[in-house]
Design a binder for these strands. Structure first.
Lengths: 332, 332
DNA sequence: GACGTGAATCGAAACGATTCGATTCAGAGA
DNA sequence: TCTCTGAATCGAATCGTTTCGATTCACGTC
């Protein structure tokens, strides 16, 4: 293995000078710096991560705590993961995966062993068991999503309440007077997952505000369940002409079932989705949607965590404003 | 921070004794061991990962190199990731994420800095640029999937050739005499991704062997493309009565389009999918399928990597045998 | 009773970086 | 000429483990 001492010898300087030349923590003459960098390349030097973390008390690694639970949407999740990993790299950090089944012990382990400098927690529930653990840990963390009691935490999320409201507003603007929210699977609500609740709350509140009748139903993603749910919905609430779908996995089935039931989109039923933009655009017809900006959320979360690591002040709550894109599934 | 010296003091032994008691690398009397463990719990001691890796030359971390490319199926990918993470934990290892966009430099960095002990590489292409890098690295690695030239590498994968063949055999057994392979998006073939090629090869070879006419078509996942593809297929090859679908994302659309075209499944067209079991079972009708055993593959890959880390001999190539499950989309 | 043996434990030297004074040196100011 | 200053560099301590002899001790043997 090539060590910093080898580089120092090769460049004719002291090891500490190499360190300063590479980290930039003290001023080094540009001539020396260039010589050091040349030696680094010549020898193929990579600082030993363990030694570095031991000496500097920084691992340059973030933990990404990702639950994989029933009803979750994997493509969206994956977008997050990749966005986070890439954003972290841009800040000279790597990402260590911690799955939810490792539980509180997993969090304590990676934080306690100084394996990671900070934690990023995804898919936070209203009463999340991981939240108290995070509080007791001495490492900074950022939650993507937020719990009922967010005191003392840093959270980022899409403003789902506003997203739900924007959907209703859009439909109301188009003249619809009876709308339904086709939501996440029941399990997600039972877990009290924040984003699902907030969407629903925003949806209902906006309906009230706009004087639009509304109803909501949780939906399982398999085709048969969707069929029964939609059929039941249109039976019981025959005046419904606008659907807000907040369930990526069920989306194709919803559209198909409407067609099957002879309801044309958008003529008979308008559909607005809350999902990643590319998914909405690929549907047939392309769906008007409020984007879930996975990429942007991931970047933002990493940026906040970096700020906390630098002891910079950070806003406790960041809600990204929803953006609605009109496509063929709703028309004026 | 609680250090091993603190634990040693608390337990009344030398630091080295604590180390031996915890790692089990030398025999320690059970009385002492118990005392040390009690102290560890009492003080909440976690060994400092950096110090450990520096001293022992092992990081207890695996790199998971995951590309996220066009045409890839995220749910399957995610199953892999989670399976790998959990399997790694069972071997006392963590998982560091390396995304493909970090390229060869990323591999060199994590390996060169001793950040990881070994690498797991997913979605390997026939002529994968990462393969030469892996060869030059001094760390052991395991590929999930395999390249054209696998000499000197350790690879695990589902036996996709056999999977394709099993599908044809099943359809041939049912009396079908003209079958089609609805494959991955064109981009996947253009990249020379191994699994897609091998499925196609196995499919075609089996068709020859069984005296069954066959055709193949790459397929984009969006609904409209699927419709055109399937319609075109049934126009040009009107005698096709059996479909093998190796494209998770297109699956729902394929079934829907068949229905739309008035072809009943399984009466008019039999469908066999190559995809994760749960997905096949959730479709309407439930599809006969050859399972892509993500969980099993992930575990196996980790087990092999662990064996290599222990310098145990490992088979260079492992092909998991495909398992076909009959469901409602094909009938006798 | 001296001796060899093996199990249990100790002590100290790595491991490879960072970091904090200390040192050197050139140039400015008096 | 001497001192002062600040930039550039050096040297040594430090981080918290693991690991490799060395040491201790109890016990059985001759």
């Amino acid at each position: 293995m090539v060590t910093i001492a080898d580089v120092a010898r090769h460049a004719g300087v002291a090891p500490s000078t190499v360190s300063y030349a590479l980290t930039g923590r003290r001023s080094i003459s540009s001539a020396t710096k260039a010589r050091v960098e040349a030696s680094v390349r010549a020898l193929g030097y990579h600082p030993h991560a363990g030694a570095r973390s031991l000496a500097s008390n920084r691992a340059n690694v973030l933990a990404l705590v990702l639950p994989v639970r029933e009803g979750m949407n994997m493509p969206v999740m994956m977008q997050f993961v990749v966005a986070v990993a890439n954003a972290a790299r841009r800040h000279e950090h790597d990402v260590l995966l911690v799955t939810a089944d490792q539980g509180a012990a997993g969090l304590r382990r990676v934080a306690g062993s100084a394996q990671v400098d900070g934690l990023l927690v995804m898919d936070v529930e209203m009463h999340d068991e991981r939240v108290p653990v995070l509080r007791e840990l001495d490492r900074p963390s950022v939650l993507i999503g937020f719990p009922a009691d967010a005191a003392g935490l840093t959270c980022v999320d899409l403003d789902f309440a506003e997203a739900g409201a924007r959907c209703v507003d859009h439909l109301a603007d188009l003249g619809h007077s009876y709308v339904a929210l086709v939501g996440a699977p029941r399990a997600v609500y039972q877990r009290d997952t924040g984003f699902a609740h907030r969407t629903m709350a925003g949806f209902s509140a906006a309906a009230m505000r706009r004087g639009v009748a509304s109803t909501t139903l949780p939906t399982e993603p398999d085709h048969e369940s969707v069929r029964q749910a939609i059929r039941g919905l249109l039976d019981r609430h025959s005046a419904v002409t606008g659907l807000v779908v907040h369930n990526e996995a069920a989306l194709p089935s919803v559209v198909e079932v409407l067609r099957e039931l002879g309801r044309k989109v958008p003529e008979d039923v308008a559909v607005v989705a809350i999902c990643p933009d590319d998914l909405a655009g690929r549907m047939n017809p392309p769906l008007t949607s409020v984007a879930v900006p996975a990429e942007q959320l991931g970047h933002h979360a990493v940026a906040l965590l970096m700020a906390k690591l630098d002891r910079a002040p950070t806003p406790p709550l960041t809600l990204l404003p929803p953006r609605l894109t009109e496509r063929a599934s709703t028309t004026r």
